[in-house]
């Protein structure tokens, strides 16, 4: 999948961000994602890897203090969150939010039409949309009954994750950031969700998987594996790095990195 001629779709340079009362979570992140690639960002809990995906998607709790992000030739950080989604960035949530009273079908149609309108496409009326969404649901082995239920309300962990991938399938993003999409999935659900992701892969789009474990990577094979620790990427390798992490844990990489950063601070 690695193609030196491929177009960069997401370029992160020196990104720093703080949360709430100024605690720095991202401490200088550099990442280059090209069309057609799959990246995995791995790292221990609390390393900041989920924060990276939220900052890129424009979560209001975080403040960017330095760096820049180029998304398909546009300055991503200057765009409000909904603009980023319309431009083709997708965030699959680790904990998808429940929205009582709003039907899943209604929510997804509004999302679909917002994105379509922004891209100069046609809006779909409820009947047309119903056809489209039912077809996409088949691949994820989802019961059409989910369309009438409130968004994520009372869904099991696995159902929520499938619902995220369904939305990804509808919104057809250029870059999908999938935050811990594998957590809470049993082996069958993992296979279905991974199959859904693979089905959406194309020459002109890219996937960034944020994950703690390597098991999803058995199904969605990454081109690059990045180890995240203490707010930045400390090592980059290929899929074998993920296997090594699975075997040896993170300490052998992160401990020296922590020591390095302690040294850096001491200087």
């Amino acid at each position: 999948m690695k193609d030196p001629q491929a177009m960069p779709v997401l370029e992160v340079r020196g990104l720093r961000a703080t949360v709430g009362d100024g605690v720095e979570i991202l401490k200088g992140v550099d990442l280059l994602v090209k069309a057609g690639e799959v990246h995995a960002i791995m790292g221990p809990n609390g390393s900041g890897k989920s924060t990276l995906s939220k900052v890129l998607a424009g979560h209001p709790d975080y403040t960017v203090t330095a760096g820049e992000v180029i998304f398909r030739d546009r300055e991503l950080l200057a765009m409000p969150a909904e603009e980023r989604a319309r431009a083709g960035l997708f965030l699959g949530f680790q904990y998808p939010v429940e929205i009582p009273g709003v039907a899943n079908s209604q929510f997804m149609r509004l999302a679909y039409n917002s994105v379509q309108t922004a891209r100069g496409g046609e809006e779909l009326d409820p009947l047309e949309f119903d056809d489209l969404v039912r077809e996409r649901m088949k691949y994820l082995e989802m019961d059409p009954a989910f369309l009438e239920r409130s968004v994520n309300e009372g869904f099991s962990g696995g159902e929520k994750k499938r619902n995220e991938i369904l939305q990804m399938a509808l919104l057809d993003p250029t870059v999908a950031l999938l935050d811990e999409t594998d957590s809470g999935l049993d082996i069958d659900a993992l296979r279905i969700v991974a199959g859904g992701i693979n089905r959406l892969r194309r020459e002109d789009n890219a996937v960034v998987l944020v994950t703690h474990y390597q098991r999803l990577l058995n199904y969605v094979i990454p081109d690059y594996v990045h180890v995240f620790d203490d707010g930045h990427i400390v090592r980059t390798g290929d899929k074998f790095l993920a296997l090594e992490l699975e075997e040896r844990g993170y300490d052998w990489i992160t401990a020296p990195a922590a020591a390095n950063s302690a040294q850096a601070q001491a200087r």
């Binding site: 319309r86 998808p96 009273g101 509004l110 999302a111 917002s114």
Partner: peptide
């Protein structure tokens, strides 16, 4: 609201829908 925004839906439409 962030969940709506991440799907391309602005805050105003989100509040109204909720």
């Amino acid at each position: 609201l962030f969940y709506f925004a991440s799907r391309g839906i602005d805050n105003e439409s989100a509040v109204s829908m909720i």
